[in-house]
Amino acid sequence: MSDTPVSEMTFEQAMSELEQVLSQLERGDVALDESIALYERGAELKKRCEAKLKEAEEKVAAITLDAEGNPTGTTHVEGQ
């Protein structure tokens, strides 16, 4: 697992680590205590991925298009 706090991870970092966590859990060869810790870490990573995807969707939605379909600018997205 990464030493980077989940709250500071990029989408790609969180997704990569989530895949590693899932792989370890699916193998089933970890102790119960470690499985619980992995599950908790996985839940945090999933939440981070969802938040980063929502941010990206909001940025895309904020782009306005002119009559020809060209971007005309962006509107302020909350949290930016």
Rank of each mutant, 00 (worst) to 15 (best):
M1C: 06
M1T: 05
S2V: 03
T4W: 04
S7I: 10
S7P: 02
F11N: 08
E12A: 12
Q13K: 14
A14Y: 06
M15K: 09
S16L: 08
L18Q: 11
E19V: 00
E19T: 06
S23P: 00
Q24A: 13
L25N: 08
L25A: 04
E26D: 13
G28H: 08
G28N: 06
D29F: 12
V30I: 11
A31E: 15
L32H: 10
L32E: 14
L32Y: 05
E34D: 11
E34P: 02
E34W: 07
I36C: 01
A37P: 02
L38A: 04
E40F: 11
E40P: 01
G42L: 07
G42T: 02
L45F: 06
K46Q: 15
K46S: 14
K47V: 01
K47D: 09
R48G: 01
C49G: 02
C49Q: 07
L53W: 06
K54S: 11
E55P: 00
A56R: 14
E58F: 03
K59L: 14
K59T: 02
K59D: 07
A61S: 12
I63N: 06
T64S: 14
T64M: 13
E68I: 00
G69P: 01
N70Q: 12
P71A: 10
P71W: 05
G73A: 09
G73I: 04
G73K: 11
T74C: 12
T75F: 08
T75K: 15
T75L: 13
T75S: 15
H76G: 04
V77I: 09
E78H: 08
Q80I: 00
Q80A: 12
Q80S: 12
